[in-house]
Design a binder for these strands. Structure first.
Lengths: 286, 286
DNA sequence: AAATAAATTTCGCAATCCGAAAAATCGGAA
DNA sequence: TTCCGATTTTTCGGATTGCGAAATTTATTT
């Protein structure tokens, strides 16, 4: 079909409107590179070693092609033949590529593009916070614009954990022993609008968050913002950090907000979890 | 030999005998995949963002080709365009490949909860490493929290075995023939703080570790950490892996550290050894 | 030993990829 | 602003090279 189009000379490209899009996309791509990447992707943690025919069927390519692809990857050092078997496996050279993706970047840099993807049309701001003693430390924050928002949180600010929506999201997923320890710590001094809640209020609130998987409420700081926060969980469901987004209370109801933001925030937390796992620890504030 | 056969059947492509080797190599390779990999490799820690023309010159390919390669990588999700600029950068998806390359997901999973039990009030971090050639590969690592700790080791990192405390713990329990073989191998390149020790120093150090049953020393990496490591031995006393824990040097002396951590670490190594035996998965990487 | 399955190689066709060069776009400098 | 230079993006023809089917070799099983 592409052959036809080509022979028709360059005039009629958009004759068939429906097709021109797909063709246009594929025009500037390299198919064999895409196939080679599919070969790499067919190796997983569960299936770290594969035979030629397994690769062929997983990557949906002809065995002959798979053979050539694997040979190329072996040449390049990304794949090795397992001795005394017909199987292949990824080498550690592949991990070098990954490190280049994240090297030198601290948690803030890794999180910033992800947070940026959360603010836009509706969301005013997105933040990333971590637990530091009894407080939440704001590690990164991205705002939609410089306009609006009176009271704002700066990077480096600390707020007692259970006055922060981010804090709620994290505390709710802490193992109970850890939670006890954190609640027994004394928050840093500062001027805050509310008096501390009593223990049973905290329990009830955290239970609710744990069940929903997120915390959602109006800001305690009189900024007129509605805030939704979700924890960044590691593979064992331990909270490493939490992400929040905010919209003006007048702009949408809690229900609308949740419907609108929840999936995007969840995706962001997964991305950040991956970034943290991949990069190991990085000092929160450089 | 294959060249002969070929020329009998298929005409004169191999007329010039000298060339047949080169032809033979390239016959089963896919050139555009190799070029695409060079594109990925042109991103490094020092140059995490590149323009099209930089990629083209670094990967030694035509700008037009580089454009198509980058488009393909963007499609596949391994590269992203940096907003508001003409630059490209690797995405975190690249790190996924790396994790698939790290051997035995099950080993990590069974070790993680055990490592987690080692970190807490005093210990900053606990790690599990295996021998990979002449290097130690960090397979899993659990930290106390995201704050604190400057320099840290990522999962997937490799360090020449005798610069790593985990390495000392493993080498000390290797059969002497194996030890010879490992010491004769060349570690992966990298920037490391110390020059290699000479042979007699290594001997003395390993002898000491063998007698104590553990390795204990200050990190060579200037992180201000004190590290204690013990091997995970199978039923034949062959070292399958090693566990380490770390505390800040200022927090306690070596003596206190040993008294505090030794039993817990020993229990952890025994647990991991048992778990490995139970799950049947034994072999490290060749 | 035979049969079956998998891996590797062959081979011809043409689709695809390449490179050069044109076109479009961006970024400064004047 | 307008112009110029550099970079990115698209075009295009041609031949390279990658593709798939089938043949051959190798291994695995019955």
């Amino acid at each position: 079909m592409q052959g036809e189009k080509r022979s028709k000379i360059a005039g009629e490209r958009t004759a068939v409107a429906g097709r021109s899009d797909a063709d246009e996309d594929s025009r500037n791509l390299v198919n064999s590179l895409a196939k080679g990447l599919r070969v790499l992707e067919s190796f997983t943690a569960e299936r770290p070693e594969l035979t030629l025919s397994e690769v062929a069927s997983l990557a949906k390519i002809d065995p002959g092609t798979a053979f050539r692809m694997l040979n190329t990857l072996v040449m390049a050092g990304y794949v090795a033949r397992v001795p005394d078997s017909k199987r292949f496996r990824l080498t550690l050279k592949v991990t070098d590529l990954g490190f280049h993706a994240i090297a030198r970047a601290d948690l803030r840099e890794l999180a910033r593009p992800i947070l940026r993807s959360l603010v836009g049309e509706v969301n005013e701001a997105a933040s990333l916070g971590v637990l530091d003693g009894a407080d939440i430390l704001y590690v990164e924050r991205v705002r939609a614009g410089l306009t609006r928002i009176g009271v704002d949180i700066r990077i480096g600010t600390t707020i007692p954990a259970f006055w922060s929506t981010i804090g709620e999201a994290m505390l709710a997923f802490l193992p109970s022993a850890e939670l006890e320890r954190v609640l027994s710590l004394k928050p840093r001094p500062g001027v805050f609008p509310h008096k501390p809640m009593n223990r049973s209020e905290i329990e009830a609130s955290l239970k609710n968050v744990r069940e929903c998987g997120h915390a959602l409420r109006d800001s305690y700081f009189g900024s007129g913002l509605r805030v939704l926060a979700m924890p960044v969980l590691d593979v064992d469901n331990y909270p490493l950090a939490a992400v929040s987004v905010a919209v003006p209370q007048i702009q949408m109801s809690s229900k609308e907000f949740r419907e609108h933001a929840l999936d995007a925030v969840r995706r962001a937390t997964v991305d950040i979890a991956r970034a943290i796992q991949a990069s190991g620890s990085v000092s929160a504030i450089a």
